[in-house]
């Protein structure tokens, strides 16, 4: 049990460190003191609370959402290559966003929020279409069916995105920028918009932590153990899709986090979903905050797309952990 407590302490410390670094480092350096004593430097406090903090929190939420959704999908699909984008939900979100940019859509009352709202709608529509189609094909909704359906929808929606990119003119930069993913210049309203989906989605997944453990041994085995497989599967798929949709809607398609954070967490702390889900959530947040920090500071004042950095940092870290784990026996023994 002490191992689990240690895991949470280490992960939370990492997260705190990431947040402090995230809000203090930038084109203007800010002393961490400002965090608990805003009066010491009013201008810095303004930057910290109105520009950097929402950005860091958004990055953290997106990272957390993608990581916990990835962990759940990998467990549910019993496939180490699964990630939040496997089911095509992200492609749906992208179509919604790219369409908004391509046609210059602006919905009444929403203004600049047209894009994330359209993206969220795209994600939810895709989710229901994927599940509906999978159910049509195979009433018991075997995971292989769901994966294949997701791939079919992804590639179809991907072609629509490609088509819009091919036909677009001046919006190209905007579209590509969005597709590569970013959490910059979003502010608190984006945080507010994503937060309820991420809280609900994560909670739904966490409620299914024991069921996910059982389903690692296959749906049939889970059923033997008393899991209401159909219901639980649907809940997990919906929970993960809501998380993915919300994350993509506010930040674009940021790769790697959803695939790799669950793996790193699993390698270090074990694959018990009771802990894997919350730990992935925390570590996903930390990693994306750090990646965003690097993206905006490494060749400052130019900002790199965050997706470039997630892979750039994540892959070597993953490689190192993978190597240590295979070489030195189990880290979690």
């Amino acid at each position: 049990m002490s191992k689990n407590i240690l895991a949470y302490i280490v992960s939370l410390l990492l997260l705190c460190g990431a947040i402090v670094l995230g809000v203090t480092i930038g084109t203007v350096s800010i002393s961490p003191v400002v965090l608990w004593n805003p009066a010491s430097d009013a201008a810095a406090a303004n930057i910290l609370w109105n520009i950097r903090m929402p950005r860091v929190v958004l990055a953290g939420l997106v990272g957390a959402a993608l990581a916990i959704a990835g962990a759940a999908f990998q467990g549910l699909l019993k496939n180490p290559l699964a990630d939040p984008y496997t089911l095509g939900v992200s492609s749906g979100a992208s179509v919604g966003a790219v369409m908004t940019l391509f046609f210059g859509i602006s919905l009444p009352f929403l203004g600049t929020f047209t894009l994330p709202v359209m993206s969220m709608i795209g994600a939810l529509l895709t989710m229901f279409m994927v599940m509906g189609f999978a159910k049509l094909v195979d009433r018991s909704m075997k995971m292989e069916t769901v994966i294949l359906t997701g791939i079919i929808f992804s590639s179809f929606l991907g072609s629509i995105i490609s088509l819009m990119i091919a036909l677009t003119g001046e919006e190209l930069r905007q579209i590509i920028g969005w597709l590569l993913g970013s959490v910059s210049m979003r502010g608190w309203p984006y945080v507010q918009m994503a937060l309820p989906f991420i809280v609900i989605g994560s909670f739904v997944l966490w409620l299914n932590r024991r069921e996910l453990n059982a389903m690692l041994f296959g749906e049939e085995r889970a059923q033997h153990l008393g899991v209401d497989v159909k219901k639980r599967k649907l809940l997990i798929l919906i929970g993960g899709s809501v998380l993915t949709g919300a994350a993509v809607a506010v930040s674009g398609t940021i790769g790697f986090i959803g695939l790799v954070v669950p793996h790193m967490t699993r390698l270090v702390w074990g694959s018990d979903h009771r802990h894997l889900l919350p730990l992935s959530f925390i570590n996903g947040a930390s990693l994306l905050i750090i990646c965003d920090l690097v993206a905006r500071t490494i060749i400052s004042p130019t900002e790199l797309p965050i997706g470039v950095i997630t892979s750039f940092i994540g892959a070597p870290v993953f490689a190192y952990i993978f190597f240590r784990q295979r070489k030195g026996g189990s880290l979690n023994a």
């Binding site: 990998q74 467990g75 019993k78 180490p80 453990n213 694959s271």
Partner: peptide, 8 residues
């Protein structure tokens, strides 16, 4: 059955 992830 073979499984992708390991439990203790």
């Amino acid at each position: 059955h073979v499984h992708a992830f390991s439990h203790s």
